[in-house]
Design a binder for these strands. Structure first.
Lengths: 212, 212
DNA sequence: GCTTATTATGTCTATAGGTGAATATTCCTG
DNA sequence: CAGGAATATTCACCTATAGACATAATAAGC
């Protein structure tokens, strides 16, 4: 359901081809909605069938022809109506790693550390890539209102990754492993990271017990 | 795929009936894997067919009979093997709200504030409920290794919710709305929340631009 | 005796979400 | 001109999930 709207939103901001859309999803939309190219093409076909987008064949000289997709009036209305619906469910978390951890006592600690390390690296990479996009926004002197909204969505993605990175460090501390390298240069990070990275498993237990 | 393993892990920690499993998923497992009762019953049936769990009919006096599910040797091996696999993909984020926001300029700000507020409340509720479970852990003088792992998984859930709550506040600040009430009593919160709540949209932009 | 809630276990169906493989064109390099 | 990379798209299939429906026992209140 939401994939269609994610596509409508992206196309509304900037009409483009399916292929370009895939690239945009991989670059930044991914931080709030991920999808494979097959899914995107399928959803585009359905949206066109429903009349929410229209396509125009563009003849290209140096490369295969492409279809330029544009949101129709009906598509825009549908999108706006959906945004207005308050039938809002928050994202249910689904993490392989946490499932593994919840049965962690059944396997050697080393196994868990390996899994954790893989995750840690991936989250750090994602964070880095989102922060790179964030930097691009920051370099524009005056962001359009449109861009500001997109930046705000990106901020959520960054906060999610920060939370994961901080948790990985906490988990590594618990599993008795030193953190291999500092997250990112100090000073370039919002205070939240440094604070939360410092927080240990033990400390958090004590805090919970003192909470009212 | 992972639902089966989430069930195996839960049953391995504590054998129970399908009904109880549903309740456990709603209570705390949900913070790392969510599933409906239909999915759980279906997955249980499949696991039994495959021989990974066995069921025993329990006659009950005061209520309908139930089936007590236990993980078999084959199930335990399967679970342990899966935990060892390093084919680990981090959770792709999928958020309706962020999709809505990315096209936020197409609707009145009030619409967005409404949507945001609904999310804010839900994340705060989730956070509160996870923190309540966390408190239960903290009250046990000496946690078993088993429980420590589960607590660590819960910590990830809490951090996720904290990140969402903090972002909601940042977003509200951007949309020009005052935060209606403080997150939770100060002092009961890890420093990370207070820090990150304070961080504004504008400040974050400046930080991004100064980052190397 | 009737209604409603809770415990307990499922099935069916439609649709959304997701993967793997295949296809075709054009460009660039050796 | 052969082979690979980038562009651009589609098919077939499978799983996941939501929503509705079905069943049946007990317990509590009116």
């Amino acid at each position: 359901m939401s994939l269609s709207y994610a596509i409508l939103a992206a196309l509304f901001n900037q009409p483009c081809s399916g292929y370009d859309l895939v690239k945009r999803f991989n670059k930044s939309v991914e931080c709030f909605w991920s999808a494979s190219h097959q899914q995107i093409y399928k959803a585009l076909a359905k949206l066109e069938e429903e009349g929410h987008v229209s396509s125009e064949k563009i003849e290209q000289e140096n490369r295969p022809n492409k279809k330029l997709y544009t949101v129709t009036d009906s598509g825009r209305q549908d999108l706006q109506q959906w945004i207005g619906e308050t039938e809002t469910e928050i994202v249910p978390l689904k993490s392989d790693l946490l499932v593994k951890l919840s049965a962690g006592h059944t396997v050697p600690t080393e196994t868990l550390i390996n899994a954790l390390d893989t995750y840690y690296q991936q989250h750090r990479d994602k964070l880095k890539s989102y922060q790179a996009v964030s930097k691009q926004y920051a370099q524009v002197p005056e962001l359009s209102r449109e861009s500001q909204f997109q930046y705000l969505a990106l901020r959520a993605g960054i906060r999610q990754q920060l939370a994961w990175v901080a948790w990985c460090e906490e988990a590594m501390g618990f599993l008795g492993q030193p953190v291999k390298q500092p997250v990112i240069k100090p000073g370039a990070q919002p205070a939240a990271v440094r604070e939360s990275s410092r927080e240990s498993f033990r400390e958090s237990l004590r805090e919970s017990s003192s909470a009212s």
